[in-house]
């Protein structure tokens, strides 16, 4: 099977070093298990995506674009030529507007179906079996007829370790892209340094003292704030309390009422 993996120029979330985004490294691993894969990157610089060579790709094609140019037309043209059986991408490429639109726009441009959030795949006869994550380990097992565009879910197997020797053997090829206009108008945005906002905490006290609100804001609240201690209760009472609590927070199914069936 011929596979194209879309690679984007990511940045390490802490250090800011140019790195291959983790999801795309996971996509590379999925691809390595399925067939012959080539990486595809459209952007000004391929330094960050060269990491993928050490993580399971043998070859990367670099479509040189100006900073800020829309990668979709160039990628669509190149993918049209390559005509792979499978296009793998992360959920949201980095380096551009990071809206996660590229795989969708590509699927539309290439008139291919798109399957999101895949964690595993295997090839059948002219078909692909894909496991799609529904969160928390639940899956939807799909059989699709290719070619198809697939995005990868973070629960997919962890990326392969970077091997310096493999990276040394891999190649990055520059491919001149066909000039094209932007397909979707971009949103005008105003940028500034990120400001962390308190995560919304369920059950945060609306009133209460400043200390309580602070606890709610820093995540030290919820269960902790309403901690309840039973000292040496009767085991039966303890069991009832526990089951009631587990049901209240919704992790344990309520006991079926008599006459349910």
């Amino acid at each position: 099977m011929r596979i194209a993996v879309l690679l984007s120029a990511g940045r390490h979330p802490v250090s800011g070093t140019p790195v291959l985004p983790r999801l795309e490294a996971q996509a590379v691993r999925l691809a390595a298990g399925l067939g012959e894969a080539v990486g595809l990157h459209a952007g000004p610089d391929a330094a960050a995506v060269a990491d993928a060579l050490g993580q399971g790709l043998g070859r990367i094609e670099h479509l040189h674009l100006a900073e800020g140019a829309d990668p979709v037309p160039a990628l669509a043209a190149r993918l049209g030529t390559l005509a792979p059986d499978l296009v793998l991408a992360g959920r949201r490429g980095q380096g551009g507007p990071e809206s996660g639109m590229v795989p969708y726009a590509l699927a539309e441009a290439l008139n291919l179906p798109l399957i999101p959030d895949v964690v595993a795949g295997s090839a059948g006869e002219g078909t692909l079996r894909l496991d799609q994550s529904l969160g928390r380990g639940a899956l939807r097992r799909l059989v699709v007829r290719g070619p198809v565009v697939v995005t990868v879910h973070p629960d997919a197997p962890a990326p392969l370790a970077y091997a310096y020797g493999r990276a040394r053997r891999g190649t990055v090829e520059a491919v001149t892209p066909a000039p094209a206009a932007a397909s979707v108008p971009e949103i005008a945005v105003e940028e500034r340094p990120y400001r962390r906002r308190p995560k919304l905490v369920k059950g945060a006290p609306a009133g209460g003292s400043a200390a309580e609100r602070l606890k709610a804001a820093t995540g030290e609240s919820g269960a902790v704030a309403s901690g309840r201690v039973l000292v040496e209760p009767d085991p039966e009472d303890a069991a009832r309390e526990i089951l009631a609590y587990l049901r209240q927070i919704g992790v344990l199914a309520p006991p079926a009422a008599p006459g349910d069936r």
Partner: peptide
């Protein structure tokens, strides 16, 4: 094993990757 095959132990991949990318 590490440089040519990338065959680090599974749990060591994270720390070594972070070392490479974040210096820590």
């Amino acid at each position: 094993e590490t440089l040519e095959r990338g065959a680090l132990p599974e749990k060591a991949v994270g720390p070594v990757t972070e070392l490479r990318q974040a210096g820590e």
